[in-house]
Design a protein around this nucleic acid. Structure first.
Length: 567
RNA sequence: CGGGGCGUAGCUCAGUAUGGUUAGAGUACCUGGUUUGGGACCAGGGGGUCGAAGGUUCGAGUCCUUUCGCCCCGACCA
């Protein structure tokens, strides 16, 4: 491509609404432009990068025997009613009617559509397993799109779906997909971590997220200092505390604790470690049919992990409860405790199992119980509710956990039969029984990956694309196009590199050296071949964007010299 | 959906407190010239329904009302 003819609107200044470095640079370098909140145009350079990433994905998918399809973006609302997700997705589903008044939605993900495609077509165990995927525009009418391509409403996702006759085969495919996703991210040159994720209300036996490490990430992940363990904080586990503080000695008793409401006040008041206090958190749990107050109990030094709590309560979501509402329910803010709470659903954190010598609220203003043995609570429901903290022990080795921020670029999921049951996608097994297909789903945010690559690969001058992601591998920069020798050599090399199949751009614009160099650095070509003032000495220079250095090459050997480095 | 901020040239922004020439600057763009190794210089030029609608006023970018859009924090996010 000739720069003089290319549509690459670069800009010295950043748009005021952009905050994230990837958003700023992709905009400034002319890769994307914004249409409206959460809607972006891909300009020629952006489209090329997009295709690069898609090619890598396609390559790795075909190595795994997955087949590419393309499903309709507009999907009949009926399918969403059938699966029950039309309510669940709520306003994120963009709905509209056609001229015949039929209701449709723009696909935010395609489980329903894919199941619809294969049901009554994958009907025998002999046809299994099957893995079908697509790379396609998705639309989710997010309440709050932000951070440029990172979280847009219209975005491009690779979504794959596999179908199996049994759980073992799903496990095998899940691992194969994990390995494939790992290879994709490695080829893209990303530093990432595959972490355990919350499987959420969808159920299924497991899910993993692919997190690109970046300070700008929206997710917090806990990673082990020693082993491979990593988990989204929503699902992270930790080992049991190794150092147990000395237990306070006290017989069971009711104690006057005037105006002592917080855990901090309580541990100061009794001069004990908050480990021996019981934290009580009341939440309003929302269910499909009803809503009710659920009480969660943890050790005072732990904090409630809301996603874990939501799962433990099997609720759709949890809402905060105001002091007013607590009072109406007969609860005393600041003095709630687990004893005699038969009227409420109570869930205890596992750390409270067999806990002794505890201090907890007496459900009476200004009173706490001391010396409580949790064993008095018969048939209490225990679950993992506490959020892991930095420094906690790894659940699998003796390493410690630290927190880092990640960008979720992929999510792979063992779905099981949730959708095949809802949409009645069944096959005949070896025994001739009709059973639902067992499914896995594998998502990867392609447009988000573009932003993630730049989040990790940039400097103060601009983008630094890796060889596999760059829109063009080589930029030939003719310093002064009025210099006939420079111009002629540039054209000659441009033709030669093109013939050799290299993705090459020639900057033949009537601009000065500095101007063109700034653009080259902003755009982030991995290599720029500078044909300039050194030519009178018989030399050209190859600028390496990542190393930020120029090496001199004899002009007569430019082609081979560059090919050796660039290929 | 709650809280906050901002809408003036393609982009960055001044002007709005206290209403008053023909609405400005930088940058980008066009023409001519000079220049040619780090976003050059000189001269000339094009480009604006001041987000929109309504109102107050002799007069509104500026005041009032309504509304739309964009960004940030939070809620939310298979």
């Amino acid at each position: 491509m000739r720069f003089s003819k290319a549509f690459i609107p670069t800009s010295k200044e950043a748009p005021s609404e952009a905050v994230l470095v990837s958003h700023i640079l992709l905009w400034r370098a002319g890769f994307v432009s914004q249409v409206a909140s959460g809607l972006y145009n891909y300009l020629p350079l952006g489209k090329r990068v997009l295709r690069k990433i898609e090619n890598i994905i396609n390559d790795e998918m075909s190595r795994c025997g997955a087949q590419e399809v393309e499903l309709s973006f507009v999907t009949p609302a009926e399918l969403w009613q059938e699966s029950g997700r039309i309510e669940k997705f709520g306003k994120e589903l963009l709905r509209f009617k056609d001229r015949k008044e039929n209701l449709f939605v723009l696909g935010p993900t395609h489980e329903e559509m894919m199941v619809n495609v294969i049901r009554n077509r994958l009907t025998s165990y002999k046809q299994l397993p099957m893995n079908l995927y697509q790379i396609k525009t998705k639309f989710r009418d997010e309440a709050r799109p932000r951070f440029g391509l990172m979280r847009s409403r219209e975005f491009i996702m690779k979504d794959g779906y596999s179908f199996h006759a049994n759980e073992e085969d799903l496990d095998r495919e899940f691992e194969a997909m994990e390995a494939a996703y790992k290879r994709i991210l490695e080829r893209l040159g990303l530093e990432f971590r595959i972490v355990e994720a919350d499987s959420g209300a969808i159920g299924g036996s497991g899910s993993k997220e692919l997190m690109v490490i970046a300070d700008s990430g929206e997710d917090t992940i806990a990673i082990c200092s020693h082993c491979e363990y990593g988990a989204n904080i929503e699902a992270a586990l930790c080992s049991q505390r190794s150092e147990i503080p000395e237990a306070p000695e006290a017989d069971f008793n009711k104690f006057k604790t005037p105006n002592i409401k917080s855990i901090e006040d309580l541990s100061n008041f009794f001069k004990i470690d908050s480990f021996y206090t019981v934290k009580t958190i009341a939440m309003r749990a929302i269910y499909e049919e009803e809503e009710k107050i659920v009480l969660f109990f943890l050790r005072g030094n732990d904090t409630l992990q809301e996603v874990k709590a939501t799962n433990a309560a099997k609720a759709l979501e949890l809402m905060d409860v105001s002091e007013e509402e607590l009072k109406d329910a007969g609860l005393v803010a600041g003095f709630m405790g687990p004893l005699d709470m038969n009227n409420f659903t109570c869930i205890f954190d596992e750390a409270l199992q067999n806990a002794d010598s505890m201090i907890c609220g007496a459900n009476e203003v200004d009173y706490h119980y001391v010396g409580v043995d949790m064993k008095v609570l018969k048939e209490a429901e225990f679950a993992d509710l506490a959020q892991v903290q930095e420094g906690d022990g790894c659940p699998y080795c003796n390493g410690t956990l630290s927190f880092t921020k990640g960008i979720e670029v992929g999510h792979i999921f063992k779905l099981g039969t949730t959708y095949s049951k809802a949409l009645k996608a069944e096959f005949l097994n070896e025994k001739g029984q009709s059973v639902p297909l067992i499914m896995g789903t594998y998502g990867m945010g392609v447009s988000r990956l573009i932003a993630a690559v730049i989040e990790q690969h940039h400097d103060e001058k601009g983008c630094v694309w890796t060889k596999e992601t760059a829109p063009y591998t080589l930029n030939i920069m003719v310093s002064n196009i009025k210099d006939e020798e420079q111009f002629a050599l540039g054209e000659k090399l441009y033709a030669a590199f093109r013939k050799a199949g290299l993705e090459v751009m020639i900057d033949d614009r009537k601009e000065r050296f500095g101007f063109k160099m700034k653009d080259a650095e902003l755009i982030g070509f991995p290599y720029t071949l500078i044909i300039g003032k050194e030519l009178v000495n018989g030399n050209v220079q190859l600028f390496d964007r990542k190393k930020d250095e120029k090496i001199v090459i004899e002009a007569s050997k430019a082609f081979d010299g560059v090919m050796d480095i660039v290929k």
